[in-house]
Structures are given as C-alpha cells and as structure tokens.
Amino acid sequence: MSPELALLNGLIEPLQYAFMQRSLAVAIMVGIICSVVGSYLMVQRLALLGDAISHSVLPGLAIAFLLGVNIFIGAFIAGVLSTVIIGWIHTRSPIKEDAAMGIVFSAFFALGITLITTIQKDNKIDLNHFLFGNILGVTAGEVRDTAIIAALVLLIVVLLYKELLFYSFDPLGAKASGLPTGLLQAGLMVLIALTVVASMKVVGVILVLSLLIAPGATAYLLAPRLHQVMLLGAGVGVFSSVSGMYLSYYLNLPSGPAIVMVVSTLFGLAFLFSPRHGVLMGPKRWPFGTSR
C-alpha cells in the first residue's frame, strides 16, 4: 500500500465506528462555531470574558444533572448568569471589570467542582470529561444538541452580521446611530455561552478558550476583513478539532489537549510565516502596517 493510501485508510478506517462518526460531526460543528464567535471576542479584546464564561458553566451543569434536566441548559444558564453578575459588580462598585471577572468565574468554578465531585461519587459522571473534554465519548443526544446550538449560533451571526460588525468596531458610533447596543452586547454574551456549552465535551471548559481565540487570531494574521477572519478561522478550527480527534484515537491522548496543541501550532506558524505580519517575513510591522 502506498503511503498516501495508507494515510487515507488511516483517516477513513476509524469512521466505521459509530462513536467516531459522532465525534467527527461534533468536532466539525464545534470547530466552526468556536472560531466564528471567538473572532468577536478577539476583536473586542474580550478574551478573558470567554475564559470567565467557560469556567462559570460548571455549577449549572451539575445542578441540571441533579435535577435531571438537560445539562446543556443548566450550563447555558450559569454561563449567562455569570456575565450578568460580572456586569452588575462592575457597574455598581468601583471594582474594575477584569477583577469582577476573576472573582465571579473562580467562585462559579469552585462551586461547580465541589458539586460535581460530590455527585460523581454516586453517579456516572466524570469531572475530568467536563474539565478537559472527551470527544470520543459523545452520545447521539449530544450530537443532536450540538447541531441545534451550532445552527442557532450561525443563524444569529448571519442575521446580525452588519450590526455586530458596527458595534464591535465602534460601539459609541453604533449607539449614536440608534442601534440598541445593550441588546447587541447581550446577544454576544448569549452566543459565547451557547458556544462554550457546545464545546464542553470536545475540549473541556478549561481549554475552550484556546479554540475560541486561536483560530480567529491565526486567521487575523492572514486576512484583512472580519468575515474572512471568521471563514478562514472556521477552517483552522475544523482542521484542529478533527486532527486532534484522530490524535486522540490513535495515540490515546486526551482529546482536548490534543486539539489545543494542534491549533496552537497553527497559530505559531501564522505568527512566524504570515506573508504580511509574520515575524520572519520582511520588516517588522504591526497589523496592517503602521497606524499613525
């Protein structure tokens, strides 16, 4: 067998298993929505907020599990609730936003770990799978839920694209033109929470930040317009999550870290070799030349 054929065979052979088909489907969907939604976080300098929301979903997930409700719903509510509390502390006290995020997400995270550790003594639920992901263990129900979330997220981004572009670039100008920027901001928080919830099983809540930021950042070094950053980022995200899934299958690596190592490597390559911004490519320039 030629090497090419062997590689192709190596990619196709695992897909005869239903669990691998489910993993592939989830990897593709999560790779796309993380990159698209994460592009907004990157251009708005809200990376830390992505981290805060992802850590904050745990207690909601645990409580939903205890109540027998879909854990995605519980996680989503906790994620959104954390942004509301962060905003509340930030506007009603002299505490700065980054400090408020630090306080709220670590409190939520601690509560989540405590609850799940207590629950997992008597139940079939594994804390590690939520912390670090378990892409090879997704169920058919989770594939369905991920598909619903992915469709919803992409629909919102497409429908609100021009408004969200204006708002992310110039929030004051957008507000002054009469756009309801508070609603747009809230919509963005909902998008992030939905995306984090869909990504839990793939990379886990601790590492999901990487899949949110790194694909968009990689594409940002290569493309000059936001929708191009999103599309190229989606390609990077899908490639990373799918290849991480195979690495996990063949080398028996934890799936989340495998995916994050792939996407981090891709970012490193763009950082070094991007035609316009690569540090090894021509004179040192900051994005898109000098901004005087």
């Binding site: 251009v43 300098r45 021009k162 408004e163 572009l165 204006f166 992310s168 670039f169 110039d170 004051l172 100008g173 957008a174 002054a176 033109s177 009469g178 756009l179 940002y220 493309a223 000059p224 317009r225 936001l226 191009q228 950053v229 900051w286 994005p287 898109f288 901004s291």
Partner: peptide, 28 residues
C-alpha cells in the same frame, strides 16, 4: 444623527476595509 468619535477611541487594527467602515453608515 451622525457622530464621529475621537480617532483615539477606535481600534485601527480591527479587521475591516475602508468600504466596510463606510457601509456601517448604512446599517441603521
């Protein structure tokens, strides 16, 4: 109303072209 903020309030490294920015004036 059309409002143009101070230039220092804008992130000029944002991934947008001249056309993207002018079209923002048509969003509302």
């Amino acid at each position: 109303v059309a409002y143009v903020p101070q230039r220092s309030q804008i992130d000029w490294t944002f991934p947008a072209t001249v056309w993207d920015v002018v079209m923002m004036g048509r969003v509302q």
